[in-house]
Nucleic acid binder design. Sequence first.
DNA 1: CCGATAGTAGACAAATCTGTCTACTTTACT
DNA 2: AGTAAAGTAGACAGATTTGTCTACTATCGG
Lengths: 192, 192
Amino acid sequence: MPSQPAPRADKRAHLVDTALRLFATGGYHAVGIDRVLAEAGVAKKTLYAHFPSKNALIAEVLRERDRRFCASLAAFVDRRSAPLERLAAVFAWHRQWFAEPGFAGCMFLNVAAEFHGEVAELQRLAREHKKAVESYLVGLLEPLTGIDAAPALAADFNLLLDGAIGVALVSGDAEAAERAWNMARRLLPAAS
Amino acid sequence: MPSQPAPRADKRAHLVDTALRLFATGGYHAVGIDRVLAEAGVAKKTLYAHFPSKNALIAEVLRERDRRFCASLAAFVDRRSAPLERLAAVFAWHRQWFAEPGFAGCMFLNVAAEFHGEVAELQRLAREHKKAVESYLVGLLEPLTGIDAAPALAADFNLLLDGAIGVALVSGDAEAAERAWNMARRLLPAAS
DNA sequence: CCGATAGTAGACAAATCTGTCTACTTTACT
DNA sequence: AGTAAAGTAGACAGATTTGTCTACTATCGG
């Protein structure tokens, strides 16, 4: 079998990894292609061999960010077994995230803020990510609230998480995650 | 009396007004100085006679946005007299805002997302705006919850509003404001 | 009426941005 | 070993960015 016809695909991953880090902490417009290339140690031609444009790179960065976000969150949650603790872990995970040194908000909220509407693909990726988080919350809520009440509460909790992100971004206060969790607990039907 | 030594100060206001509109719907990096000047019908030299840099213009835009935001919200709230209705009006005002055609999120959250940390002045203005909103919420909550419980609930409600802004921005759903208000009601100590 | 002030129009500088292209080098599979 | 794919370095084009500067014009107070 011909195995891989494109064996140099690790450069692409490194490029996306570097771009992810720089865009996350520096913003999409403020960080230029040349900066990403210099930091990654990759030639400009290689970038445009893998992606047709900067926006296409940003789109791939968002897809990668979504993968890492979901994987990291799920791993953190799966260290707990009790349903209420698993739900609490979502907020605790956010709290850790906010306290990271280079925290600069949610890449999906930020992309919506910077490109809002102009680039439909990026807007779509942002919407899909938030939808994925909400669906994940539904699964965590079902054991606690039953299958009927879970979707509405998941939307509520999703809003709480976005609110915590906004507060943490502007005020720099990682405790926003705890504030959101305290509100979430009070909104649960009949738990401690 | 010498009345006004600088009678041509209305150009400045027009400049800020145009910049406010364009930055709000187009983003800070994406909208260039030339675009603002063309739209305002003002010469470049006039801009730099009033402001030392683009960032200084952005700072003034944020100050103006804070003034208008607070004035518009207060006027909307003051049409009600019952404390609970006045509080509900805050969320209803946000709902109207989200449904406006060019809605593109909160200019203060967005400035934090685009410049996060680099430009200390802009970050400070964002933080102060959110603090002002929270203080306003304290005043609305005191008649409902007493003077002791109000500050903590105001911080909670502020987080709810930021969450609604985030959800509305990404999903385009103005109903996020109602969702936030329904959560807020459930968090009030002893109201309907 | 006249001079100072504030404005316009727009050229210009210097940097920076995305994206293309040429020439050379490394890598890997057969 | 040799060939084809993939990467590097970097010049280059063309547009766009912020900010400065020159020359001209309108307006207003005294």
